[in-house]
Each structure stands twice: as C-alpha cells, then as structure tokens.
Design a binder for these strands. Sequence first.
DNA 1: TAATTGCATTGACTTAAATCAAAAAAGGGT
DNA 2: ACCCTTTTTTGATTTAAGTCAATGCAATTA
Lengths: 227, 227
Amino acid sequence: MNKKFNILSSIPSFSGLSETQLEEIKQIIVNRHYNKGEIIFSDGDDGNGFYIVAKGRVKVFKASPEGKEHIFHIVGPGETFGQVAVYAGRSFPANSEAITNSHLLFIPRTAFVELIGNNPSLAMSMLAVLSMRLREFTVQIENLSLKEVPGRLASYLIYLADEQKTGDHISLSISKGQLASLLGTIPETLSRIFAKMSSQNLIEVSGREIELLDRIGLENLAKHGKL
Amino acid sequence: MNKKFNILSSIPSFSGLSETQLEEIKQIIVNRHYNKGEIIFSDGDDGNGFYIVAKGRVKVFKASPEGKEHIFHIVGPGETFGQVAVYAGRSFPANSEAITNSHLLFIPRTAFVELIGNNPSLAMSMLAVLSMRLREFTVQIENLSLKEVPGRLASYLIYLADEQKTGDHISLSISKGQLASLLGTIPETLSRIFAKMSSQNLIEVSGREIELLDRIGLENLAKHGKL
DNA sequence: TAATTGCATTGACTTAAATCAAAAAAGGGT
DNA sequence: ACCCTTTTTTGATTTAAGTCAATGCAATTA
C-alpha cells in the first residue's frame, strides 16, 4: 500500500472502488511535477487526459484578451481537474497553472476511457462527481448574476468556515488578489469590502487569517445582499 | 416504433443505444403535461427524477429573495433538465417552469439508477452530456464575469445564428425580457443596447426578428467588449 | 373600436464597482 | 537590517448598469 494508493482512495470519484480497480488505475497514471507559476495546460489545448492533485495547489482560470482573468477553481490535494475535456473528447475550455510547486497524477484519456467501459460503478461515481461540480457552477453563476460582491464574499467565507471545520476561524490558502478573481472582482474592491465588513463587526481580518464575528449577519448578507 | 421512441432516440444521452435499451427506458417513463406558467419543480424540491421535453419549452431559473430571477437555460424538445439532482441524489438546485404548454417525459430516479447500473454505455454517454453542459456553464460564467452586457449579447446572437442555420437572420423564441434574464441583465438595459447596436448598423431589430448586419463587428464586440 | 393586459422602450437618476494612481505594508532573500 | 518585490490598502474619478417612473405599442378580447 504505497503513497499513490493512498492518494487514489481519497479521491471522491474513486472512493468505493475495490483494491483491484484502484490497482488498475494506478497502472495508467503518469507522475508529473510542476513548479510554481508553471502552466499545466492552456485554453484550447487538446484534452488528452486529466489530472489529480497529489501535492500542491492549482488554479483553473480563463483569461480575457485584455488580460483580465477569472479563476474558476482552486484545486488542492485529492481533487481532480480537466475531466470535462476528457469525457467530451474535446479541448480544454480553460487554462491551469500551478500556484505552488505541485505533484500531479496524469490520467491519459485513452486508457481511462477503456477502463471506465469495464467499470459501471466507476462511471456512476464519476457521474456523481461531475454533477457536484455542475452544482457548484450553478451556485457560481447565481452568485455572479444575482448577488453583489459583498454577498458573494459572505457566501464564500461561510462556505470556507464550514469546509475547514475550524469554528469561526478561517485561514485563506490563496492571496487576496486571487480571492478577488475567484469572486469575479478585483483586489481593490475586495479590500474595500473587507474594510467595510470589519467596521461593521461582521469579521476581523488579519493577513490571511479571518475571524467570523457575526455569522447571522453574514448569512443575511449572503442571502439578501446589502452591506 | 411509436412517438415516444422517436423522441427518445433524438436525445443526445440516449443516442447510440440499442432498440432493446430504448425499450427499457420507455418502460420507466411517465408522461406529464404542464400549461404555460405552471411550475414543474422548485428550488429545494426533492430530486426524484428528471425530465425530457417532448413538446413545448421550459425555463430553468433561480430567483433571488427580492424576486430578481436569472434564467440558466431555455429547454426545448429533445433536451433534458433536472438530471444533476438525480445523479447526485440531491434536491433540485433551481426552479423550472413551462413557458409554453408542454409535454414532458418524467424519468423516476430509482428506476433510472438501476438502469444505468446495467448499461456502461448509457453511463458513458450521460457523462459526455453532463460534460457538455458543464462546458456551457463555463462559457456562461466567463461571460458574466469577463464581459459586459453588449459583449454577452453579441456572443449570444452569433451563437443563435449558428444554431438556427438561417444565415444572418435570427428569430427569438423567447421574449426580450427573458433574453435579458438569460444574459444576466434587465429588460431596460437590453433594450438600450439593442438600440445602440442598431444605430451602429451592427444589427437590425424588428420585434423578435433580428438581422445581423455586421458579423465582424459583432464578433469583435463579443471578444473585446466595448460598444 | 374601446379597453384591458402584457411587453418594450425611453428618460432621469442612483449606485456598485472598475479604473487610475499612489502609498503603505508585508515578505523573502542576502 | 536592509533592499527588493509583491501584495494590500486608500483615495479620486469614471462608467456601466441598475432603479424608478412613465409612456408607447401591440395584441387579444369584450
């Protein structure tokens, strides 16, 4: 039971698979290392496989011609990215870049497609994972179109607090600039909103450490907007 | 080979299935009819099955507490909606409403899950369809966060023209108010942008009929923004 | 042909957030 | 500690788009 095995079984899509099945997957994995700032794939590249993060952190983003960029996900250990292109047999619809030195497991398309053909249960769990991501996107679209930035931020903070299970304390794993992009805004605006939220005793910010002081207020903000 | 069969085989997820498989699916379908304006399911309802549109048109949307709504999709004959909740075994993440009198085919979850367990190829094609939708969402998020309304409209008009294969002439199948919501804006703004685009001879609008006069200009607008 | 209803447009105004520009703060490495 | 770089904050300004309110314009129906 080596390291690779441990990583694999912790991945949602692959949980519930037998050891034999995991072993099969292990056979087709290619190890890849990227340094901070390195591009993994670019918008329009051929989708010849997808990635699992073993170590590090990766951003998946889209850039406008003027250089503005919007981050879709920040992907960490145990998470996957790039599958869509693989299933659909298309090119990648976005860019990805390592934001820390990262160790990734690459799953080539051809081998994977073959594998899935023989594993209905694997297919099912992939379906479920994709569905989840689709749901996340739904939330993101909803946020972008229905809510203003403070509401989006409040939602995200609450989400993070739940995610990290560390009570009302959060520590950001990304820079505030990147958080801004993730929320579909710019650093200046985010900074002002942090300031405003702090002055209203909703939160307390100290560098990348954030304390949620008034969850009810935040939830209210997340739902009904208006700071 | 009755009517139901014809509809089924025209659905992307089900194309490539054998007649026997289609027959199996037919067994679990429930016919449902909705009048214009009727709610099909609401945000938070239990996702106990998904729908195929046989006839009519349905909008899938999300509403904010203040009543603002954003339309995610307009779904027409041969298209499906509501699957995500089914695969993930969760509640519906949005609302749906018939915008014309509609005939829908309802696929109950339990029966479908059983079916898919026995059909790897069905699972695969479902994966592909989900992936496609995910890709659409990616585009939508990109539009909402990277582009201004005129750019989004230009993209959508070009998309529609390609879709309808009717040269440079488009006819909208939905009201302008609904189009506004689909683009993440409001009718007033959309109206002003239509006026501006017309004055610059990019398009010519007459009710729900639109003529694309300057595709290059539109494409430019879709990419680089700025009207 | 009025009249009701729903949809679309127009105008005046407000506002959230982007842009531009600069200063301040925080890290990292030597 | 110091320099250099990156990140974050603050301020002044502009702008796109939302809000409010009124009007116009079909289309259907009485």
